[in-house]
Design a protein around this nucleic acid. Structure first.
Length: 365
DNA sequence: GAGTTTGAAACT
DNA sequence: CAGTTTCAAACTC
């Protein structure tokens, strides 16, 4: 840790290579480990993957640590985007939350020897490409953004190690998916059939054997996913209605949101969740999609939207948004007169609702 | 803050 | 593909 830090500071950054060496450059020079850095040199080290080779090469040629940063002051949760604190991976491996999330490290990261920044954009890109090729198409091969930029435009992708993980689910064995070691739990979403966790107790929806509990469990073959939009939930739900929203793992969707009707709390090391009594609903019988014609489904969807996105429902949800002032809450019903606004409002995730509502209120005024 | 535990990534 | 090692984050003391 401090060893690499030291070596980095003792070797002030020099101009980065205009064109970073190929990730498979056989002529790569070896690192001369700084005193006390043998271990790092070795395990950074006994590995000869192309990505590691890239990092090693560059760590020789440049002083690294470009624009180095202080350790995260807020534990890394700053603007909602987790920062990394990588010491050995050069932020060029999926261990790095920023790299894994497809973003560049930022000033608020606490990482050392960081290559995951625009200065080494090509290196980052080629390394990402290597990993992508190695792992197949499950890795997001995309242009990096800064963590700040990314966090402003998407739902904190850095909070999950990688998109490949998103497609694989978790593999928890000891924590029962009740701690933040579990990617599903950390993301506030339930485990899915893709997860290989053991003794899953994920409060956001657990996997029990081959089934999902507390979330919808839909077969994916031969069923049009569109048919399982919330609109048809009542018709085709085969699992209990859940107080929690579906894990994106479960439906291969990138969308998830916190359910405002559910409160989870930590007490004495235990997690408790409470569902508003008004929201609890019984199990629903399954009805296969072919029991209704497409026209019927369309018509039912329309009718369902009519009574699903009611003004009263919107007001109920809005009342639970603490950050809205009394004045804003008194004006908001005007926004909900429009059925489209009602649908949008109820479809938005909790943290965005207030922002959206305020904007609509401004438009009205 | 240091040490331990954990699960994912990387590697063999 | 399974087992092992390495890594960084979460957690505990």
């Amino acid at each position: 840790m401090a060893t690499e830090d030291t070596s980095a500071s003792e070797n002030p950054p020099i101009d980065p290579p205009l064109s970073p060496p190929s990730t498979s450059d056989p002529e790569e020079p070896r690192i001369d480990p700084a005193p006390g850095d043998e271990k790092d040199a070795k395990d950074a080290d006994g590995r000869d993957s192309s990505s590691q080779a890239t990092a090693d090469v560059l760590s020789v040629e440049v002083g690294l640590d470009q624009g180095k940063r202080e350790a995260p002051e807020d534990g890394g949760e700053g603007n909602g985007c987790r920062r990394c604190s990588c010491k050995k991976s050069r932020c060029l491996k999926l261990y790095c939350a920023c790299f894994a999330g497809g973003t560049y490290c930022s000033e608020s990261c606490g990482c050392q020897l960081c290559f995951n920044n625009p200065t080494y954009g090509e290196t980052v890109h080629s390394t990402r490409k290597d990993i992508w090729l190695r792992k197949g198409c499950s890795f997001p091969l995309k242009a990096n953004e800064t963590s700040e930029a990314a966090s402003g435009s998407k739902k904190d992708t850095s909070k999950s190690p990688s998109s490949s993980q998103r497609k694989k689910g978790c593999n928890c064995k000891k924590t029962s998916c009740l701690k933040k070691y579990c990617d599903c739990f950390q993301g506030g979403i339930g485990c899915s059939l893709l997860c290989k966790c053991e003794d899953c107790q994920n409060i956001f929806g657990r996997k029990v054997g081959g089934f999902l509990e507390g979330q919808r469990n839909l077969p994916s073959i031969g069923w049009n996913d569109d048919d399982y939009s919330d609109d048809e939930e009542d018709d085709y739900t085969i699992a209990a209605r859940s107080p929690f929203h579906q894990s994106p793992f479960s439906r291969e969707s990138s969308f998830h949101q916190a359910n405002p009707d559910v409160k989870a709390d930590m007490m004495n090391g235990q997690i408790y969740w409470q569902l508003s009594p008004l929201k609890a609903q019984p199990w629903h019988r399954v009805k296969r999609p072919n029991e209704d014609s497409v026209a019927d489904i369309s018509h039912k969807r329309h009718l369902k939207n009519e009574d699903k996105y009611t003004i009263s429902r919107c007001i109920e949800v809005m009342s639970g948004i603490a950050e809205l002032s009394q004045e804003e809450k008194s004006l908001a019903p005007d926004v909900f007169v429009d059925p489209h606004n009602r649908e949008i409002f109820l479809s938005l995730s909790g943290d965005v609702r207030s922002m959206w509502l305020r904007r609509k209120l401004e438009q009205l005024s």
